[in-house]
């Protein structure tokens, strides 16, 4: 029988529009799990910005939609 995501202690997220199954429960853990080494990110969960100061304590839940963005060239 297939185990569900909850039984595996993992959650399913949409990260930058792609479905991912992760063990992370906070934005900080998610960045580490995704091997994001840069320093300049902003994170929004379900369109709400999570300030960097709250990356450790904010809780990610199954089904959350996460955006991770960086500075880029623009006009």
């Amino acid at each position: 029988m297939q185990k569900t995501a909850a039984q595996e202690n993992v959650i399913a997220l949409a990260v930058n529009g792609e479905r991912r199954t992760v063990r992370a429960t906070s934005p900080r853990e998610l960045l580490a799990e995704l091997d994001l080494e840069g320093e300049f990110f902003a994170v929004a969960v379900n369109r709400r910005v999570i300030p960097k100061t709250r990356w450790n304590e904010a809780v990610l839940r199954d089904g959350d939609s996460v955006e991770i963005v960086t500075p880029r060239q623009g006009g």
Binding site: E37, G38, F41, V69, P71
Partner: peptide, 22 residues
């Protein structure tokens, strides 16, 4: 200067390189 906000790729290194130059 104007800049944009984009989804990260390349492990965040692109954003860092660009931002350091700015």
């Amino acid at each position: 200067v104007t800049v944009s906000v984009r989804r990260e790729n390349a492990g965040g290194k692109d954003g860092d390189t660009f931002w350091n130059i700015i």
